[in-house]
Structure formats: C-alpha cells, structure tokens
C-alpha cells in the first residue's frame, strides 16, 4: 500500500524491514547458540567467522566464481534463446502454437530430470551452463510474449493499414513495446540462472558452489554448507539488483 511518497511512510516501511530482518537474525543467533535445531543450525556469527578464515574464504571464492560464470553464460544463452523463440513465433505465425507447447513442456520438465540427458549430450563440464540456460529461457520467453501482447491496438491498426512486413513490425513496433516486459523477465531469470547452475553442478561437475554444497552436506561441514548457500543467494540477489538498476536507469531514457 503506497499512498504517495511521503517520507514518513518510507521511514515506517524501512523500519518494518529493519525490525523484521533484525528479529530473524537475533532469533537465528539465539537458536544457534542454544542449538535448538541441533548442530545443523549454527549461530550466524560462527558461519561468518568461518567464511572469513583465509583458507575457506579462498575455497568459497574460487567455487563462487566458477558458479557465477556458469550462471552468467547460462543466463545469456537462455535469454537469447527465449527471446529468439518468442520472436520467431511472431515472424512466422503457423509455428507459434507448437513453439508455445514445446516451451511449456520443456519448462515443465524438472531440471533434475534433465541431468542424465545433459551429461550425455553436452558433457559434465557444460551441464551447469545448460541447466542455467534452461532455467532462464522460459521466463524470458513468457515475458517477451507478454510484451508482444501488450502492443496497443492502434499500433496494430497502423501496421495493417500500411502493410508493414512482419519483420519490420517486429523490429520497430513489437520489440520496443516488449522491452519493459523483457527486462522484468530477465530480473526473474537472474535468480533462476544461479539456481540452475548450482543444480547442474550436482551432476559430476568438477567444481563450483553446487559441488561444495553437496559435499559439505554429505561430510557434515555445516559452516561450509551455510556459507556456500549464502553465497549462492547473494549472487542471485546481486543479479536481481543489477537488472533492477538497469530497469530504473535505462528504461526512462528509452521513453518508458
């Protein structure tokens, strides 16, 4: 509920966040110190101090950079593919229905079920990239399609009266109209990409946060497990933040 942009409202909103998160952290610290949930929930402070130790810090950063590059490449590939599929349906309408069904179907396949297939087809090394791409492509596809549907009907009429070719209509009318929606999709895709990359690394990838998470789980290295999971979260948060910034700065310049 945003009633105008008066500062009092903003401050109370921020206060709620601070109180909410503060309570969560305090509860956590206490639960960890008293070990309410056993050894698996360590206090927040011990996780942080563990992650700051030089040896574990280096390990975490090395794994995180591998996962980040997997997620980034997957994100790029996935968004380009999602965008291309949506556009090709627009250029050649007879294909549209089949492409919709195919995309929905591929999206509905649980990523974990695709693991065995991807190891054989693209290899263990590139499986994380492929799963990240698969996780991203559908959100982008749906976002772009949604954007196409939001083209004002006046524009549609103009296109039809002047007999504009589909290709040009796509370039000059439909795609610019779909841009805000595309960026929305990319924003959602950022966290899916990290998720996909971590999941893909469970299928025998040599290194990365996913590998770290599974091995830490099996070897009961609780601090390592939590730090790795937090790093993954931070990564998807950063991706989301960067794209949100882009949305705020870039879109007004393009007239949105």
């Amino acid at each position: 509920m945003y009633v105008g942009t008066c500062p009092v409202n903003f401050i109370s909103e921020a206060l709620k966040w601070v109180v909410g998160l503060g309570m969560l952290f305090v509860l956590w610290e206490v639960a960890g110190q008293q070990s309410w949930l056993g050894k698996a929930l360590p206090p927040l402070s011990s996780i942080v101090s563990y992650a700051m130790e030089p040896r574990s810090y280096e390990l975490l950063m090395r794994s995180a950079s591998i996962t980040a590059s997997n997620a980034l490449y997957g994100f790029l590939i996935g968004s380009i593919v999602g965008w291309a599929i949506a556009c090709s349906g627009q250029i050649w309408p007879p294909m549209k229905k089949g492409l919709d069904t195919l995309s929905t179907f591929v999206n509905a396949i649980p990523l974990i079920a695709l693991g065995p297939l991807l190891i054989v087809t693209v290899g263990e090394q590139s499986t994380p990239m492929a799963t990240a791409a698969l996780a991203v492509f559908f959100t982008v596809f749906v976002a772009v399609l949604g954007g196409f549907e939001r083209v004002p009907s006046v524009h549609d009429d103009v296109i039809r009266t002047y007999g504009v070719t589909r290709w040009r209509a796509l370039c000059f009318i439909e795609f610019p109209n779909a841009l805000p929606s595309l960026i929305d999709g990319l924003k959602l895709g950022a966290s899916s990409a990290v998720l996909g990359a971590i999941l893909g690394e469970w299928f025998g990838a040599p290194a990365g946060l996913g590998v770290l998470i599974v091995s830490a789980m099996q070897n009961f290295q609780i601090n390592l497990l939590w730090s790795a999971a937090f790093l993954g979260t931070a990564m998807s948060g950063i991706g989301f933040f960067v794209l949100a910034l882009l949305q705020q700065k870039l879109l007004p310049r393009l007239g949105w």
């Binding site: 909410g20 998160l21 698996a40 966290s191 998720l195 999971a229 979260t233």
Partner: peptide, 20 residues
Amino acid sequence: VLTPMALLIRSIPIVAFVPI
C-alpha cells in the same frame, strides 16, 4: 515483520537450501 522475510526468501535459490 513477515513480508520482508517472505520477499527475501522468494529471492533465494531454494534448491541451494534443500541440503541444509
């Protein structure tokens, strides 16, 4: 108190937390 928590958890790659 709950909404910030819910929004925060929504942006977490939940699969990463399954092992935990």
